[in-house]
Structure formats: C-alpha cells, structure tokens
Design a binder for these strands. Structure first.
Lengths: 223, 223
DNA sequence: TTGCCCCTGGGTATAAATACCTAGGCTATA
DNA sequence: TATAGCCTAGGTATTTATACCCAGGGGCAA
C-alpha cells in the first residue's frame, strides 16, 4: 500500500491523544495526521486534511462528539468515525451509530482493542466495544448500514453545500434564516434547495426531512 | 375484573383465526370481540368496537400488517397490537416495533406463547418471540418505548383527525391534496394544521415530520 | 484553453403555508 | 339544559416555497 491510512485525533485531553498516538505508531501504513482539542478545531482540520478516519472523544468540548460526527458526515461522508466513550449505556451506543459513527469503543477497552477497531474500520467494517454485547452491534449495524449505506457510497448525489442546506431545512430553518446563517443570499439558498429537490427527485419539504433523518444529518426528535 | 380484555383478530386465514380464538377461550376475562380478514375490515371494526388488543397477521391483505398497525396507532393509540409473523429476520421485528406494535410473535411460537404474550401486553409490557433473542427486544423496547411513550399515554394532545393530518403532512401531502383525500375543504385542513402546530408548539413542517416519525406514524424512509 | 461543476445572485410568477379572525352543527357529558 | 370539545368552513393578509428563466466567478481536469 502506497498511501497510508490518515487518522485525525479529537480529544480534549493531551495525554489521551498522546497515548492513542503511541499505540497507532506501532501499526503499518497508518498515520496520525492531526490532533484537535475540540469540535471546532476538528472541523477546521477536517476540511484541510481530509483524513480517512476520525477518532473522537464523545465528550469533547465545543460540539460534543455526536454533533461533530453528524457534521463530519455532512461535510465529508467518506470519512469514518470511531467514537471513544466511557459510557457503557446502550443509549450512547445507539446515538453514536445513528449519528453515523462506524465504531464505538469504550475507553477502558481502548488499550487492547484500538488497533483492532482501526483495522476493522479501515476495511469498511463496524467496530463495537466487546464489553457491549455483540448482539447489540449486529442489530444496529444491520439496520443503519442498510438504511444509510449510500451515505458513504458513490450514490451520494449532493454537494457539501447542499448537504448543509438539507440539514438546516430538516431543522426547520427557512430560506431566509439559512441565508443569514450561511452568509449567502436567500435566493442562493432557494437555488440550492431546488437543485436538491431535483437531484433527489423529491417534491416536498417533508420528503427532505425524511431524507435528512435517514442520512443521519439530524435526529427525529423534536425536543 | 368486571370488564373483559377485548381482542380483535385480523388474519386472512379463517382456520388460523379459529385456532387463536380457541386458545384464547381458555383464558380468564379475555374475549375475542371480532375478526377481520383484511386491513380495511380491521379498521372498520376498530372504530366500531374499540378493542384493547389487536392480534394481527403481518402479511394480511389490503393494508399489510405494519401499515395497519400505523393506522391503528393514529386512530386509537391506546389499542395494543400483537403482530403474528412467520419471519425470523430481525428487520421484520424492527419494523414491527417501529410501527408501534407492542408484541411480535412468531407463528411457530404462537401455540405455546400466545397466552403469555397476551398477558404481557395486557399488563402494559412488550412481548417478543423467545426465538428472537431477548437482547434484541431489550434494546428496541428501551429505545422505542422511551422515545414514544406518550404515544399511548395521557400526554397525547392530538385528536384523531389531527393525527391523520399529521401523518399526511409527513407523507408530503399539501393541504389541497389532504382535503381531497379526506373529503373536506382545504380550509379545514389548514385549520387542523394550525391547531396541531399550536398544540405541539411547533413552527415548521419540518418539526411536524419529525414528530410524526417519532410517533411512528410514518417511516423515515423516502423510498 | 476549453469545458464542466460548484457556488453565487437576481427576475418573475404561481402555489402553498402561516396567522389572525369569524361561525355553525354535532356529540358527549356535567 | 348547558357547556365543552371536535369537525367543519370561510375571509383576509402576509410570508414561504416552488418553478421557471437568466448569468458571472472560481476550481479542476481533459
């Protein structure tokens, strides 16, 4: 393999990043290309570096890990995400997978399983911490890989800007509001909107919302 | 208990209905109050009888079982639904639970487990066929009971008509289209729409779509 | 360089949604 | 009987969305 597997680390604890980095250094053809201390920095680096994988603390500051995961999947759906978490509760796992993460690793497992997790994700798989029973993983993975497979695949017909618009529409924003948020004219937003509708062959805002949910751009919850 | 637990059977096979009925006859304070051979008949009987539980074949004609389940949850969210299915695949279980069913029983299990299933649902629980591992159930039940508990509870502020409107909006229908479908004026639809928005304290169609998905009135899929 | 796609912005027009107001018939219940 | 809630329907006005048209600048690749 000529091109190494590029990894971006996102965790607010320097020591933890150092530990992960040292673990990864023992792997072949895998390289840590950047580190971020919070979500904003992560997104900035993401645009600049375009890594293959982001390893992220779920409780990272400024855009918590799951929000950042959603953003990553909108900005660059091909980037895989491995969530590091201290939470054993299944709700966290569920939300991580629905946010689009391909991996969920407990920090207490990280020492022994991180390399396996990275390898699994590198090969297109999904990795769930062994402490969270394998059955759980199967279900969610089956469901959410099947339901959102084109998220990463070549079937993604939308541009980055268009995915941003889709997310905002699904959040209930009007074209005018989106224009103000994105610092562009509402007319431009309308233009994107029309292009999205045409590309996806949709007719109604309702369809767009369902598309966004299916893609994991937003959560179905109204709360 | 003075009032018996009223059950409506929906299955296109008469012999199967007969078998279920005979099984139930051995139970205390449980009564089969009607039988339907397809989905349309089921909904008609539902409005007339208002049973406590519907036991339904997943592959029933004219409105398949899952569609009928969604309709039931819109028309009368307090009615519990037990799906009878020959499908072991987890996708069917998943879709049944997201459609709002409280129970999923494999036909090959029905003989030995039907009474347990009915009792469980009667007491407000969720029953999944033992052949489908218990872990699966736990996950989904936790998720979807937590996420849609008010579906059956007193927190449901919408009327039947309003829930119908919500479902149609989430399906992408315009007020004019809904008026034609429901044989009422589009102005009436707009009035319902405004009432729904006010009751739920929502502002945008996008929020309504997410509400409908959360409630299980529609699926998030755009396909 | 040339072409293609993305992002940007506007004009115009129609359709739809949203926000207020009004009110009558119906049913269930206090 | 009377009160309340639900479903029905219309008036009027404003805001959005949708559907067409137009075009320029920038990046990227054949």
């Amino acid at each position: 393999m000529a091109s190494p597997f590029k990894i971006l680390l996102a965790d607010d604890h320097v020591m933890f990043r150092r530990g992960v980095r040292s673990l990864i250094q023992g792997m072949d053809n895998v390289e840590v290309v950047g580190e971020a201390g919070d979500g904003f920095e992560l997104l900035r680096l993401l645009k600049a570096i375009h890594p293959h994988l982001v390893i992220m603390d779920i409780s990272m500051p400024n855009l918590r890990g799951l929000e950042a995961t959603r953003e990553i999947k909108i900005l660059d759906p091909g980037v895989k995400v491995l969530i590091l978490s201290m939470h054993k509760e299944r709700e966290y796992l569920y939300h991580a997978l629905t946010a689009g993460a391909e991996g969920y690793l407990l920090k207490e497992d990280a020492d022994g399983e991180l390399i396996s997790a990275i390898e699994t994700l590198r090969q297109g798989g999904t990795f769930i911490s062994p402490l969270l029973s394998a059955q759980m993983a199967d279900i969610f993975v089956d469901k959410f890989q099947a339901g959102s497979e084109p998220r990463t695949g070549p079937g993604e017909p939308l541009t980055i800007r268009e995915r941003e618009i889709v997310k905002l529409i699904a959040e209930g924003k009007s074209s005018k509001e989106m224009g103000q948020l994105l610092f562009i004219s509402s007319r431009t937003v309308q233009h994107h909107r029309a292009n999205i509708m045409r590309k996806l062959n949709l007719k109604k805002t309702a369809d767009l919302v369902k598309y966004a949910i299916q893609k994991g751009y937003v959560m179905a919850s109204v709360f």
